[in-house]
Nucleic acid binder design. Structure first.
Lengths: 209, 209
DNA sequence: TGAAAAATACAACTTTAGTGTTATTGACCT
DNA sequence: AGGTCAATAACACTAAAGTTGTATTTTTCA
């Protein structure tokens, strides 16, 4: 028996979801809440296997609720339900610990399928959302500041990031170590940093996730 | 009319896919190839909207084929077809530029649906594959070597990664700079590295993508 | 073609980082 | 009670990194 809870402020949707779950073999609905606060309180004490969570809620939003519940019960699985599929919501939800994404427009069959996929260790989501995840996954996340650097300087920075010494870089590029030193000094001035690690963090540092 | 090409070494699968595409309204099959080399040659000259690509092929594999075609025709879309859904293949394919992932066991309806999803700007994939993508997306990708370090050493490394000087770390933790120096030296010995940047790369370095 | 930007090079100097060694204290384990 | 490990600290020394300044050549581009 898979225990499912849901947090959704719209009464019609909440009740139809609850009915849907109750009338599906192998599923039980352990709670249906209209706001994040009461849901959070109940689920902290009574963890469910899977939670269907609306994003837009009065008071605390669904993403924050997931974040808090996930830290308390890491094994709990969350499927976000929303009308929007904008990038920010998707990523914040994923970052908070949600692993599935349903649209409210999805029919009953999709919802049941999504829950089954979830139980089977999958991440049900629309192809549109999957695309967004992939796109941002591929993005190198390089700071714009890099455009201040010349080609040679960018090359230097790459080697610097890999941990090569000035002497090694010099040998690799067949220039003198003093030139390398000069280039790197120019880089530091442009990036407003004082050390190799700061430069690397500024350019390649990953703030995303 | 959406033009679709396919590269698949198994004759039965290739012909049934070709038949499926030809018999679907709005789809046309512009080519069906049994190996990457001939497919690559044809598609370079005659780009298709969507390519169904097998991963395991004799000679050049499907991932390499995608990589090459994607650089020549970036607007071409690729759906990988495979029996396996292992992490390495999935990520390499995504990295090469594929945006969809089908299992050979999927039925005709799923294939058609996947192509439509693709045309609509989505990324059709199984929930299992979506989960893999998300997991690795969230994973900080921390090297196992970090378990060699003590709590204090791990803390040091974090500050080291942020670019703080020994003196600054010392002040932050209310210990002497000499102690910081010692801890860091221990870290380097455990990680078998000689500098801050190497240590950071070894532990937090992202090999993925 | 002429000015600006980039790449090259050298030098003197300061600061920070990294290596090696030794020693004390407290925590934890058996 | 004794042993191991982690954390603390200090000192001497070397190596590498970072700073500042000047200068020449090459590229680029308006």
């Amino acid at each position: 028996m898979i225990s499912i809870a849901l947090i959704e402020d719209n009464e019609d949707i909440r009740e139809s979801f609850e009915f849907l779950i109750r009338s599906t073999k192998g599923f039980e609905c352990t709670g249906a809440f209209e706001d994040a606060e009461t849901g959070l309180e109940f689920l902290t004490a009574n963890p469910a296997d899977i939670v269907l969570m609306d994003i837009h809620l009065p008071g605390m939003d669904g993403i924050e609720c997931v974040r808090q519940l996930k830290t308390i019960h890491p094994e709990m699985q969350f499927i976000m339900c929303t009308v929007f599929q904008d990038d920010v919501s998707v990523f914040n939800a994923l970052k908070a610990g949600a692993t599935g994404y349903l649209l409210k427009t999805d029919d009953a069959g999709k919802v049941i399928e999504a829950i089954h996929d979830m139980v089977a260790g999958g991440s049900p989501m629309t192809p549109q959302i999957a695309r967004r995840v992939i796109e941002s996954f591929k993005r190198p996340i390089v700071n714009d500041t890099i455009h201040l650097l010349t080609k040679r300087e960018t090359e230097m920075l790459g080697l610097l990031a890999k941990g090569f010494r000035y002497k090694e870089i010099a040998d690799k590029l067949c220039i003198s170590a003093e030139t390398v030193r000069k280039h790197i000094n120019n880089i530091y001035q442009k990036l407003q940093v004082q050390s190799r690690i700061e430069a690397v963090n500024k350019i390649f540092g990953l703030k995303a996730f």
